[in-house]
Simulated assay, not measured.
Amino acid sequence: MNEEYGRRVENDTEGGLHFQRLSLNDDPLIRAIASYKRQMALFNRMAMLGGEDLEVLAEKTYRPPLAVIAAWEKPALSREGAMAALKLADEGCRDNDLVITGPMIRAALAYLQKEI
């Protein structure tokens, strides 16, 4: 099995961003979540540096992968994908972000209903 790796931002370090490897397996939901997290971290980093209109920066970074997540209608394909979806939904609950929460709970639930 070919394994792909994405990178999830853990924290900001003096030398730049520190990345942790995240196994993507073959689940497109994990790839979509990883893309959203990468782009959100990039937005946050660039917004702190200033110099660019935040609306333009949002359109260049996290909004395209957020649109993918918001429109997600398929079940997760793996346990890992379901867990990643639930973790993102939990973040969405804390941030009161229903755009993320609903689709991610439904993706995890659909996977779990298939497995039971």
Rank of each mutant, 00 (worst) to 15 (best):
A89G: 01
A82H: 13
R106W: 07
L17R: 12
R31V: 07
A47E: 02
S23P: 10
K87G: 05
G6D: 07
K74W: 10
R63N: 01
I69L: 15
G81P: 14
L98Y: 12
A47V: 05
D95Q: 10
I116Y: 14
N96E: 13
E73L: 03
C93V: 13
T13Q: 13
N44I: 04
E59W: 04
T101A: 03
M1Q: 11
K74G: 04
A89N: 01
I33K: 07
R31Y: 02
A85F: 12
A84N: 04
R106V: 01
D53E: 15
D90L: 14
A107N: 06
Y62D: 00
A76P: 08
E55K: 07
M83A: 12
N96W: 10
M48G: 15
R79E: 13
L24K: 06
H18E: 12
I105A: 01
Y111E: 12
D12H: 09
E55D: 14
L24Y: 07
R45L: 14
E80N: 09
M104S: 03
E73R: 05
R7L: 12
V68R: 01
L66N: 00
P65K: 00
E3Q: 11
E52M: 11
L77S: 09
R31H: 08
D97K: 02
E55Q: 13
F19P: 06
K37R: 14
P28A: 03
Y36G: 03
E59P: 01
L17M: 12
L24T: 02
C93E: 08
K37H: 05
E4R: 15
D90E: 12
R38T: 11
S78R: 08
Y5I: 15
I30Q: 15
I100T: 11
I100Y: 10
H18R: 14
A107L: 09
R94Y: 11
Y62V: 00
E80T: 04
S35A: 14
F43K: 04
K60S: 08
M48F: 05
A89S: 05
G6W: 10
A32K: 02
M1V: 09
Y111L: 10
T61D: 02
Q20A: 14
